[in-house]
Nucleic acid binder design. Structure first.
Length: 598
DNA sequence: TTAGGGTTAG
């Protein structure tokens, strides 16, 4: 706080005191000092006091206190009280105070509206913003550019992009903030193309805030070309950019899956904060490089930065893809130890991690403990039940989800259909596949057909599966034809296999797996000549089957197993255990089929 | 210089 040299020493002392973070503890003394010294007549001193008042007093009482101190405080004093409530994140109080002020005919000015509006961004819906809009018109404050810009911003933040656009249209003068506020409103509403169109229409020079908004739109659209153009503009203006712009650029490249560019930006950042690290970590997770993501996380911690819940959500996703149960548990403990607040994202990531690591009990326990759940949380649970072979339970929880009023989305049906597929629930699968379009108005995507065809193929219903493939409005993918081919192999349908092979090779002529499957089908039918022919063809094409591999985490150490290799130091013991497990499974299978009577 | 508007990560 800088005070002019001519300021009265007591006044400077009072102002400094009011600026102290611990001033609230001496509130009563300051109150008394204000009255005895007579400085209550000074608007600046009174405004600072009003700001302090917001920390401890309800709006109507605060109003009374101020009125008792001074019969006619100027608007500045009340504005300071409103801003005080906004600063301590008490938007309801700020809004209540405003209504109280209007009701009591207190003097207000053009600064009052932006001060209250600042709090309105915390409300859901545009109700409060519209009320303030009305008051601003009535009081004649709407002609102020600051008031207009704040309103455009608040409408945009509360989901009122149409109101924001209408107001923007009516504005006689618009500056860079007006344009940025509207572009941001469209971005927040998910209208990314409209945001880019607006940017193109701008008749004032954009600044960094504008470009950051546009970068978000580019990232969400996966429009790397426009993103690169913005990158160029930033370099032209700034040369070296700050952390906010750098992070926005980094995230744009991450969302466009240009990891090399993203890494380059990350390396070149003059300063990296938690957002920079989280962006690159989540980018690596999205681009299926979870091992690198974990490595990056360790690097981040080594640099002295502690993760927050957003970083930890990404790390949990990496743990889920790698099956790193111990690392996932470490994240869980870290959250508890640090008292990090659980939200729907981290809760969902935790359920997903436990489920994908096979600790279904803990996944369900975590799900039940979540205070708030959204459709993604349910999807994580249903998907977890599905991959762990609990098809019937998945269907029961799906019914519970619908009963709780949560609307299923496309991802839910992937979980449900794969649950049916994993557990052989043909009739249920048919029913849910039909309900997708008939009840929930969701168009099946290629993945849904994939699950359904898998389900039918596993049940040996090859003709029905083939019929479904033919009914698809889009082209079947490798997975679908692969499922059909595997089913043909299991049921010795050589003719259809050959037909499918044609489709598969059309999709990916270099897929060695297709040739391997075909040669296996010929082998099952004792057509050894054909087997030799396919293998020769593979050799001629220089194809080598990519060996399958899996990773398991034991006590924090990753153990990798590659098909055909036995490099692991405990390979012999592992094979012995696997053999006995396979024997047991076979025996259990025979028992459950009734082929062995106990 | 007695206050007010727009920007980044799941």
């Amino acid at each position: 706080m800088r005070v002019a040299a001519s300021t009265h020493p007591l006044k400077s002392a009072l102002l400094s005191l009011l600026d102290e973070p611990i001033a609230i503890k001496s509130f009563n003394q300051i109150h008394a000092l204000l009255l005895t010294s007579g400085f209550y007549k000074d608007s600046l001193v009174l405004a600072k006091f009003a700001d302090l008042l917001a920390l401890s007093t309800h709006p109507s009482s605060a109003y009374k206190v101020l009125r008792q101190i001074h019969h006619h405080p100027i608007p500045f004093v009340f504005n300071s009280l409103i801003s005080g409530y906004a600063r301590i994140k008490a938007p309801r109080s700020a809004f209540l105070l405003f209504k109280h002020l209007v009701g009591n005919g207190a003097p207000l000015d053009k600064h009052t509206i932006p001060a209250v509006l600042k709090s309105c961004t915390k409300f859901s819906g545009t109700g409060e913003a519209r009320q303030l809009h009305g008051v601003a018109i009535k009081m004649g404050f709407l002609c102020d550019l600051y008031v207009q810009n704040t309103l455009v911003h608040v409408y945009g933040t509360c989901g009122g992009h149409v109101d924001a656009g209408d107001l923007f249209e009516e504005m006689p003068v618009r500056d860079v903030v007006s344009w940025t506020a509207l572009i941001s409103a469209y971005v927040k509403g998910g209208f990314f193309i409209r945001a880019l169109e607006l940017f193109a229409l701008m008749d004032v020079e954009p600044n960094m805030a504008t470009l950051v908004c546009v970068l978000v739109a580019c990232g969400r659209l996966g429009n790397v070309n426009t993103g690169k153009g913005i990158h160029g503009l930033i370099l032209k203006h700034e040369g070296e950019f700050g952390v906010v712009v750098g992070n926005a650029l980094l995230d744009m490249y991450v969302k466009c899956e240009c990891l090399d560019e993203a890494r380059r930006i990350f390396e070149e950042l003059p300063e990296r904060d938690i957002v920079s690290w989280t962006s690159i970590i989540s980018g690596l997770v999205q681009c299926k490089q979870p091992k690198d993501a974990i490595e990056m996380f360790h690097e981040m911690r080594a640099s002295g930065l502690e993760p927050d819940k957003v970083t930890l959500s990404s790390v949990l996703s990496a743990c889920a893809s790698l099956g790193l149960l111990d690392s996932g548990k470490w994240v869980h403990e870290y959250i508890e130890r640090r008292g990090i607040e659980w939200d729907v994202h981290i809760g969902t990531a935790m359920v997903d991690m436990y489920a994908k690591c096979g600790f279904l009990e803990m996944a369900m326990h975590t799900f039940e403990k979540m205070p708030h759940r959204n459709v993604s949380s349910w999807n994580a649970l249903l998907g977890g039940l599905a991959i762990n072979g609990c098809g019937k339970e998945a269907l029961q929880h799906f019914d519970r989800m619908v009963r709780n009023g949560v609307n299923p989305n496309e991802v839910t049906f992937i979980a449900i259909l794969s649950a049916c597929s994993h557990s052989g629930l043909v009739e249920e699968g048919r029913h849910h596949f039909k309900s997708m379009t008939e009840i929930y108005n969701l168009a099946p995507r290629v993945e849904h057909y994939g699950c359904m065809i898998n389900l039918l193929c596993r049940a040996g219903l090859i003709a029905e599966a083939h019929e479904l493939v033919r009914s698809m409005s889009m082209k079947a993918d490798v997975l679908i034809w692969g499922a059909m081919l595997s089913a043909c192999k299991a049921h010795g349908n050589v003719e259809l296999s050959q037909q499918i092979l044609g489709h598969l090779l059309e999709l990916d002529p270099s897929d060695s797996g297709v040739y391997v499957l075909l040669s296996n089908i010929y082998a099952t039918s004792d057509r050894w000549g054909d087997v030799t022919r396919v293998r020769k063809l593979m050799r001629e094409k220089g194809m080598k089957k990519e060996p399958g591999a899996s990773v398991i985490d034991v006590n924090g150490k990753a153990h990798e197993f590659v098909v055909g290799e036995s490099n692991h130091p405990k390979s012999d013991e592992i094979c012995l255990v696997l053999y006995s497990l396979a024997k047991q499974a076979q025996l259990d299978g025979l028992l459950s089929c009734g082929l062995i009577i106990q």
